[in-house]
C-alpha cells in the first residue's frame, strides 16, 4: 500500500508521461502531437520538482524560524527546462502553421498522401 500511496507523486508522473507519450505516437493531428509532447515534458518537470521537496521544508527563502528548506536546485533546473519546452513548443507550432500553409492540412496521413502523389 505504501508503494501506491506513499509514492503517489511518481504515479502521477508516470500516468502523465504515458498519456503524453501515447498521444504523441497515436495521433495523426500535428497539434495534438504537440500537446502530447507538452504533457510528456510536463511530467518530467513534475518529477524534478517533487524530487526536490524535503518533507517539512519551506520555500527556499532565508527567514527566521526555519531550518529545513526545500532543495531549490531542481526547481531552477526545471525553470530552464520549461523555457526549453516553451521554445520547442513555439518552434513546433511555427512548423505546424507553415505545414498548414504548404499542405492545407495538419493531418499526418494526408500530408504523407500528398507527398507520395
Amino acid at each position: 500500500m505504501d508503494t501506491v500511496i506513499g509514492l503517489y507523486n511518481y504515479w502521477v508522473v508516470i500516468f502523465l508521461m504515458m498519456t503524453g507519450f501515447y498521444i504523441v505516437i497515436s495521433r495523426e493531428n500535428l497539434i495534438k502531437t504537440v500537446i502530447g509532447l507538452n504533457i510528456f515534458q510536463t511530467s518530467v518537470f513534475l518529477l524534478y520538482i517533487t524530487m526536490g521537496k524535503v518533507r517539512g521544508g519551506t520555500a527556499p527563502i532565508m527567514a527566521d524560524g526555519f531550518d529545513v528548506y526545500t532543495n531549490p536546485l531542481p526547481s531552477v533546473l526545471i525553470l530552464t527546462a520549461i523555457v526549453v519546452g516553451v521554445a520547442t513548443t513555439s518552434v513546433a507550432l511555427a512548423l505546424v502553421v507553415r505545414i498548414r500553409e504548404a499542405y492545407e492540412t495538419i493531418e499526418e496521413d494526408e500530408i504523407r498522401a500528398q507527398d507520395r502523389a
Partner: peptide
C-alpha cells in the same frame, strides 16, 4: 522540409 523538421522535432 517542413514535415521532416517537425518529425525531427518530435
Amino acid at each position: 522540409a517542413l514535415p521532416a523538421a517537425f518529425q525531427y522535432l518530435v
